[in-house]
Design a protein around this nucleic acid. Structure first.
Length: 491
RNA sequence: CGGGAUGUGGCGCAGCCCGGUAGCGCACUUGCUUGGGGUGCAAGAGGUCGUGGGUUCAAAUCCCGCCAUCCCGACCA
């Protein structure tokens, strides 16, 4: 154990930053707030993409691609939308450079000024709805169920790798429907997709809920979300699904003729998750030894390490590794053999623990003789010697146990970090001493929400759906309330 | 944009207080050794000390400006 991460309980931010770097996920770029996603980090994103993309297609969506640049005027067509995003837009004003007349590098050519400035998309509602205008004329053209995988830019004041970067990768779904009911159904359907993805694949327990007016997406009628809890007791918004009503269709004049031959505006939704999910994954499961990845998303589910001294042993052991590899390949298990002679087994163990590979199989001369392998779990850090017979079944069983174990661990953590409070004094105490989610009554006004935020920095993460109704009094104002909402300090 | 900190080989840092021309660990190259929990030894390569100015015989070190990054706030996914 040479390389030690700063322990989580000492400095969680420091631990997170070191882990991202040491596990080879990403590094800072020369441009402030931007990151280089390294191959291992990108492989993780690809696993997420692959899974989500399949889920989107199974729910009837198709992929398309819309441009990076948006004419400035588009952004201002929806009033709330522009207000929400105007402060963080990168703007393209020129299209050409030239040699500096003073001989120092290149300068922007003042003669190459754009007639209309272009915004680098912070999100694509405007460019997409301006396009949908041409695609929608009749009820027969609906619904439009389109997703795009893209990068977006939001010029944030303060950035943090994966959690909030100036440029990030995401998917954004943008759908158009003939009726309000159908659009709301779509919004909820995609919320459910995100919920399933978080719980089943990321092993991340999340709360489904509705955002308050204050936290709602700029331009949405209703914002649904999934909220997760990180190991430091802070909440993280993991995905959002918006019912946009007719705001964008009206702003971009997207109308269609109904069966009854009447003009009507389309109904809209949008929904997205981003590379922020990688941050969520890290902060939910990993430990002081390094990453802990859920088997469902790990780039490698298994790493095989041959152990040998002599050349003869090397041949014998790697031959056995190849046999195992064939079996794993046949069973569609993602694996890697690390037969590099330059590194010792101990070094490799530490390396793959840091990288969060769920299972490690070591094969040495003794194993070949005994027809066994040594198999070690990343989540519990336990190892055992098992028979080389039925190895695939053992691996599959262990992988699903790990998936379930880290989910349960995160779930019981969330339970232990969710507190019901009924007085504001308790509210402040819990927040200061424990953190986590706080279930409390709220009078439903934006004034109270803002006041609580000002006093405690906690915000309403969501109004949980499927939440039992319960008469009570607002924790701050004492006014009547019908249900508890979820407060937390968030990322 | 406010508060704090930091900029020194690829990475992490020491040196700065008390000026004398740069060192350590990791990584890298070569050879041997070792190999079931980050082997050990030896040799080697690699640095405009963020940047611009000032003080001085002499600046990584002292003074002033600028820039960048990170952390903590305000803003946000």
């Amino acid at each position: 154990m040479a390389k030690k991460l700063t322990p989580r309980n000492k400095d969680f931010s420091e631990w997170y930053n070191q882990l991202v770097k040491e596990a080879d996920l990403a590094e800072h770029s020369p441009v402030k707030g931007c990151m280089v996603i390294k191959p291992y980090g990108y492989a993780l994103w690809e696993q997420m993409q692959k899974t989500l993309d399949t889920m989107f297609k199974e729910t009837g969506h198709v992929n398309a691609y819309f441009p990076l640049f948006i004419p400035k005027s588009f952004l201002s067509k929806e009033a709330q939308h522009v207000e929400g995003f105007a402060k963080e837009c990168a703007v393209v004003t020129h299209y050409r450079l030239k040699n500096d007349p003073n001989g120092k590098g290149v300068v922007v050519d003042p003669e190459a000024k754009l007639e209309e400035e272009l915004i680098v998309r912070p999100t694509s509602e405007t460019i997409i709805w301006s396009t949908y205008k041409n695609w929608v004329q009749s009820y027969r053209d609906l619904p439009l169920l389109i997703n795009q995988w893209a990068n977006v830019v939001r010029w944030e004041m303060r950035t943090r790798v994966f959690l909030r970067t100036a440029e990030f990768l995401w998917q954004e779904g943008h759908t158009a429907h003939a009726t309000k009911e159908e659009a709301i159904e779509e919004t909820l359907k995609m919320l459910e997709v995100y919920f399933t993805f978080a719980e089943k694949y990321m092993a991340l327990p999340v709360i489904k809920g509705i955002k308050t007016e204050n936290e709602r997406f700029a331009g949405a009628v209703e914002t649904y979300c999934i909220e997760a809890l990180m190991q430091d007791g802070k909440a993280l918004q993991a995905g959002t699904s918006h019912f946009l009503g007719q705001n964008f269709p009206k702003a971009f004049d997207v109308k269609f003729l109904t069966k009854e031959n009447k003009w009507e505006y389309a109904w809209a939704t949008s929904w997205g998750v981003s590379t922020r999910l990688i941050g969520a994954l890290i902060m939910a499961h990993s430990d002081d030894e390094g990453l802990v990845l859920p088997p469902q998303l790990a780039p490698y589910q298994v790493v095989i390490i041959p152990i040998h001294k002599t050349e003869e042993e090397y041949q014998k052991v790697t031959a056995q590794c190849d046999v195992i590899a064939q079996q794993l390949k046949k069973a569609n298990i993602r694996f890697k053999i690390d037969a590099r002679k330059e590194f010792t087994p101990g070094w490799k163990y530490a390396e793959y623990e840091l990288k969060g590979v769920p299972l490690r199989i070591a094969v040495g001369p003794r194993d070949v003789d005994n027809h066994t392998v040594e198999i070690a779990r990343r989540d519990t850090k336990t190892k055992q010697s098992i028979s080389a017979d039925n190895l695939v079944q053992s691996v599959e069983k262990l992988l699903s146990e790990i998936q379930e174990n880290i989910y349960q661990k995160a779930l019981s953590f969330r339970k232990s970090m969710t507190t019901r409070v009924d007085t504001f004094k308790e509210f402040e105490e819990v927040l200061n001493e424990k953190g986590g989610f706080i279930e409390a009554h709220w009078d439903g006004t934006i004034e109270t929400e803002l006041k609580i935020k000002e006093l405690t920095k906690a915000t309403i993460r969501c109004i949980p759906i499927n939440n039992a109704l319960e008469e009570g009094k607002c924790v701050y104002s004492g006014k009547p309330s019908k249900q508890r909402v979820l407060f937390a300090i968030n990322y």
